[in-house]
């Protein structure tokens, strides 16, 4: 859980934190790899929704350098398999995600991230 597809869709939403709030940075993460069903149509349809640079960086942070810096023109099976692995088979079980802007910490426990932000707290109070 907390697959990289999810990481690619979540931004910090602390009140007032509206710029440079994505992607969240991993900290002290425990990674597990688990197989998922390969569905090329889903992947092709989802590529336009991805922030490609953020995905490549996140994968590299976790030691996976299989993705090219830019999505290729030709979405062949070999590339889609790599994308499938990075997006859906890498799970972060423990650790935290930290906002690069306000440093809010979103902890991950047993694979479930706590994305609740204390909205009524001003940003400086949330800093760990």
């Amino acid at each position: 859980m907390v697959r990289l597809i999810t990481h690619n869709l979540l931004a910090c939403h602390v009140k007032g934190c509206t710029s440079n709030n994505f992607p969240l940075q991993f900290k002290d993460v425990q990674v597990e790899l688990r197989e998922a069903e390969f569905n090329p149509d889903f992947l092709r349809g989802f590529i336009p929704r991805l922030e490609w640079g953020a995905l490549v960086d996140a994968a590299r942070q976790l030691g996976d350098t299989s993705l090219p810096a830019e999505p290729p023109e030709m979405l062949d099976d070999d590339f889609l398999q790599k994308l499938h692995h990075v997006l859906l088979e890498v799970h972060i079980e423990e650790g935290a995600m930290i906002c690069p802007n306000c440093n809010h910490v979103y902890p991950i426990s047993n694979g479930i991230p706590n994305m609740a932000s204390a909205y009524h707290q001003p940003i400086h109070n949330v800093v760990n």
Partner: peptide, 13 residues
């Protein structure tokens, strides 16, 4: 994935 958050304060990018 499963995430803890209030949907009225959601983190969708």
């Amino acid at each position: 994935d499963l995430c803890t958050f209030d949907v009225t304060r959601n983190p969708w990018r």
